[in-house]
Each structure stands twice: as C-alpha cells, then as structure tokens.
Design a protein around this nucleic acid. Structure first.
Length: 594
DNA sequence: CTAGGGTTAG
C-alpha cells in the first residue's frame, strides 16, 4: 500500500515529527514501488540534511529507489559514495542494471562484487540468474545453477522459481517443466514463468493448457498470467479460442488492463478478425502508444492501410506520441496497400519524433518502393542507409526484383544474401523463382544444383483450417485425412467449376520443370486448396473459411481462391506467411498486391 | 520496527 505509506509520511512531516533510521527505508520503498520519483528525491535531500549518509540501511534504500525509477546513474553515484557496501548494496546495483535492460553491466557488477570477496546470498543470485537469462547465456546460467547446489541453496523456493524462469525463457521448456512439477508450493510467478516460457518458445497449446489448468484449479491469476495466455492464443491462431479468451477476460478483473487489452487486439488481428480487435480497442480506456500501435499493426496486417493512417491521425489528436513500432505498423500498412507516397512521407517524419529507423523500417521502405516498381530508387535508398543493410533489406529487394523480373539487380541482392546467410533455403528459392519468372530455365536448374550441393531442400508447404475449434493440417498432395476421398471429390468438382468459369492457371513460376498435366495436378493439390475443399464439406453453406499457411500465397492459388469465393459464395480468410487475404465475391482484400 | 529478487503488451 505504497500510496498510503506516502500519505502517512506527509502527515508525519506536517506534524513536524522527524523520521529516523527506521522510517526512511520504509518511505523509500514506497517511493520506489509507486514509483514516485519527485517524492523520493525530496526524501533523499532530507536524508542528506538529517545526516544519514553513513547509515547503510538508509543508503541501500536510496540506491534501490533510484534503480526502481530507472535512474541507474544516480543509484551508481550513491553506491560509489558509500563507505561500507554489503551484499544488499551490491544486489541493489546488480538488480538495478538487470531491471533497466543492462544485463551485461549487471554481470560485470556481480563479478566485481566477487572480486571484493563478498559472498552472494540467494537474493543476489536471483538477479544474476535474470541477467544471464536476458543475455540468453544458458551456459553461464547453468554454472550459476551449479554454484547454487554447491552453496546448499537448492531448496530456496524463490531461487528455484528464478531458475525455472531461466530454463523456460532460454527454450529448455522440458527442464523448466521438471522444476515446475517438483515445486512443493503453488506460486503465481512460477505459473507465469512457465506459461510465458511455453508461449515464447512456440508451445502455444501447452501454454493455453496450463492457463486452463489454473482456472479449473481456482488458482489466482494476475494481469501477467492473462497477458501471457492471450499471447499464446494469438500464436495458436484459432478464432474460436480467441473468442473464448476475450470472453473470459472481459468477465475478469483484467478487463481494463491496457497490457492485457493490447495483447487482445493483437490476438484478434492475428486470428483473422480485425473488427473484433477494433471492438477491444474501442472499449479500452486510457489508450497508450502500445494500444494504438497494436491496432495500427492489425489494420496493416489485413491490408486496410487507409484505416491505419486514419487511426494514426486520431492517435496524434489524442496527444499520444508515436514510437518506432507505431511507424513499423504504418509502413507495413502502406506496403500492403501500395500507398507509396504516404509511406515515404511517414518514413521521413520519423526524425521529427526523434526516432531512429531500424532494420525493419528500412526493409519496409525497400519493399514499398520495390513492389511499386521503383527498383532503382530502392537500390539508391539502400546505398544511402546510415547502417549496414542486412538480410531483411536485401531480401525485400530480391523479392521485388522477382515480381518485376529485374534479373540483374535481383542477382546482386541474392549475392549479398548468400554472403550473409549461406544456408538459408528461402534465399535460394527466391532466386530460383526470379529466374523462373524471367523464364531462364537453365539458371533455375543451376540454383537447384547449388541447393543440392549445400544439402538444402525446399520448405514443405502446409495449410491449417479450423473446423469446430479444431485445427486440421494439410500438406501438398496430402492423402492422410480419414475423409480424404470426399476431400478429393470436392476438389475435383471445384476444379471443374473453375474451368467452366474460364480459369486458366499461370504456368510461369516455380513449376517449369513439370509437363502440363503434372503441373495442373500439382497446382490443384496445393495445400490450401485441400484445406478449402475440406472446409467446404465440413461446414454449413455460407460459413466463413479460415485458413493459415506457412508460406506466401502463390499466384495460382490466389487467383483460384478469388474465383472459388464467388463460385461457392463463401468468404475465405487466408493468413499467409506475410499478411491476411480476405477473399469475397471473386476479389481479394489485398487488391492482388502482396 | 529497517534494505536487495523473479513473471510484464505492440
């Protein structure tokens, strides 16, 4: 009850009751907890005047206060001024660095402490573990685990929680789960660490399962639990699960938490329903820059660029300042809607807000220019970059060269990519596709030989479709489904109707080395068509089909899906590796620009 | 009667 403590302290001051060496650590803790920087600074001044400069309890309190307020420099000044420093003084500095995103400094301070011959206790080690977690140095983290055992601290519950969090965050979820299962007492932070660890490392279903466990066991959740569970649902991608989560949150105490709501907005956008994201956005009070950005990113993902830009204007009117993520969302939105001039203008307005563009911003601009056929300008733009262009930037250029069949520039981009990442399959496939788009079959073959020499093979395509809340996965030419026969019958009937409607498959890219019949067959068996066919026979007429695929939509499937949406009178929502496509009445929301 | 820790959105 920090605010009450501060209020009580003010009353004490008004009555001219002087604080002593016991009062001051309490009030400092309250100021650090709020945090109330101004109040704490006044207390610091008072400490100086009252002569508590040598009281290590009071001074440690001051260090921790500054560290909690993010004023690590001030904390360091106080720390350096101390005559005697004990393990608490050091821990305050170590945790201060760790909490303020300087884990390397934290570890350096820990090293220095050891050189001074000061023995860490379990609280100190908790911060050291966190620092190792943040630099993703699992090897050194494990060695700290060893020290803990040697020191006989392995039964300290909170230390075990910190270790669990470390293993979970560093991707060792099985190890973390062992700790979790062996823990004697149920602890909220332990559950949170396990859930977010699962979510962070791609075990979204496991994370959701654990969250449901908590609810069924009536274990208290906080906003961090809720947020982590929402992030996991966003990863799963099921709209039905997303709805369940939203319903749960809106009935819980977390409904007005902006941390949770920004995650909900992101979740709905990623699960394919940007309008539901908007309704969470609208019900959120005191929107901060993250809430606004999440909504802008959501519109961008769905190719609703105009709405993203309009929202940005509203955001500025509301007095909220944009940050680097806001701009990334805006640039992506412009990209997906072909708003070249708006994107260009926004990129250059970043400096007005003191925001330095990072690699993704540059890559987004290259994509924007390249896609709109300004290839030379994209190249000049890369050459004028103040930072070394990386994989994302050259990748965007290569992709644009493929679209516009600019072989020479594309080859150059591919060279840069190979020198940066010699074993990334995607780059070779892109180059091969570039040659195929220009009908340079001999060079396509050369790339394929190169890939074989390096032991690389194409990523297999797959599509997921959600039917009655269950996700069903299909690979290219998949025949493993129990209803496979019906699915292929539906597929054949679809193909007949496509042909009758005058659909002619493109024969340009990626399939050059097959003869015509083989090519046609392969196209029809593309995984998303299987998912569509399965969706059609498994749902009532008129139901929207929601499909997720791991690769980008190919030109054939894209054209076919447009027509299918009209022929069967269904809305089909496809999330590819890059963005969302909403197919309806024969057109796609991306306007064939992706 | 007093100090230090872990889980945290776009």
């Amino acid at each position: 009850m920090f605010a009450n403590a501060v209020e009580m302290y003010s009353r004490m001051q008004n009555l001219w009751v002087s604080p002593d060496g016991y009062t001051l650590p309490h009030i400092l803790k309250a100021c650090g907890g709020l945090p109330g920087f101004e109040m704490g600074r006044q207390v610091h001044g008072q400490i100086f005047r009252l002569g508590f400069v040598k009281d290590v309890f009071v001074q440690n309190g001051v260090i921790a206060f500054y560290a909690k307020c993010g004023k690590i420099q001030s904390a360091k000044v106080v720390f350096d001024g101390l005559e005697f420093r004990n393990v608490v003084s050091w821990t305050s500095m170590i945790s201060g660095y760790a909490q303020n995103g300087q884990p390397i400094e934290a570890l350096r301070a820990f090293h220095e402490m050891r050189e001074m011959g000061i023995m860490p206790d379990w609280v100190a080690l908790v911060s050291v573990i966190r620092a190792h977690t943040d630099v993703e140095d699992l090897a050194h983290g494990k060695s700290i685990h060893g020290c803990i055992i040697k020191m006989g601290l392995e039964l300290e519950p909170d230390l075990l929680i910190a270790l669990t969090a470390m293993y979970a965050k560093c991707g060792q979820v099985m190890v973390a789960r062992c700790f979790f299962d062996q823990m004697k007492v149920s602890d909220l932070i332990l559950w949170n660490a396990m859930i977010s660890g699962y979510a962070k490392n791609g075990y979204a279903e496991k994370a959701v399962e654990l969250f449901r466990d908590m609810i069924s066991k009536n274990i208290r959740t906080d906003s961090i639990t809720a947020r982590s569970a929402v992030v996991a649902c966003a990863q799963v991608g099921s709209l039905e699960l997303a709805r369940w989560m939203d319903n749960f949150i809106s009935k819980s105490e977390h409904r007005d938490d902006i941390f949770v709501n920004s995650a909900l907005i992101d979740m709905f956008a990623k699960c394919g329903n940007v309008d539901m994201a908007r309704s969470v956005f609208d019900r959120t009070f005191n929107k901060d820059v993250v809430v606004w950005s999440a909504m802008i990113v959501g519109y961008g993902l769905h190719g609703r660029g105009r709405e993203a830009l309009d929202l940005y204007l509203l955001m500025k009117q509301a007095g909220v300042f944009p940050n680097d993520v806001t701009f990334l969302g805006l640039l992506t939105a412009c990209n997906h809607s072909g708003l070249v001039e708006d994107g260009w203008r926004l990129f250059h307005s970043m400096k007005d807000y003191g925001i330095e563009p990072r690699h993704p911003h540059y890559a987004s601009m290259v994509d924007l220019l390249g896609r709109a056929c300004y290839l030379d300008q994209a190249y000049d733009f890369i050459m004028s970059m103040p930072i070394e262009p990386g994989v994302s930037v050259w990748g965007a250029l290569l992709s644009a060269c493929k679209i516009h069949r600019h072989v020479k520039l594309g080859e150059y981009a591919a060279e840069r990519l190979f020198s940066l990442e010699a074993y990334n399959t995607g780059h070779y496939v892109q180059l091969s596709n570039l040659y195929a788009s220009a009908r340079m079959w001999d060079r396509v073959a050369k790339v394929q030989i190169l890939m074989r020499e390096k032991g690389l093979s194409k990523d297999l395509g797959y599509s997921l479709i959600e039917i009655n809340g269950k996700l069903q996965s299909f690979r290219v030419g998949d025949k493993s489904h129990p209803q496979s026969k019906e699915i292929y019958e539906e597929l054949e009937s679809l193909e007949r109707r496509l042909k009758q409607a005058g659909f002619i498959p493109h024969t340009d890219s990626s399939l050059h080395d097959l003869n015509y019949e083989e090519m046609e067959e392969t196209l029809c068996n593309h995984s998303e068509r299987l998912a569509i066919a399965f969706g059609l026979i498994s749902t009532a007429p008129g139901t929207t089909l929601r499909i997720t695929k791991n690769l980008r939509a190919c030109i054939n499937c894209h054209s076919a899906t447009k027509l299918i949406s009209k022929l069967v009178n269904r809305e089909i929502v496809v999330r590819d590796a890059n963005r969302f496509h909403h197919f309806k009445d024969g057109v796609c929301s991306c306007g064939d620009y992706w």
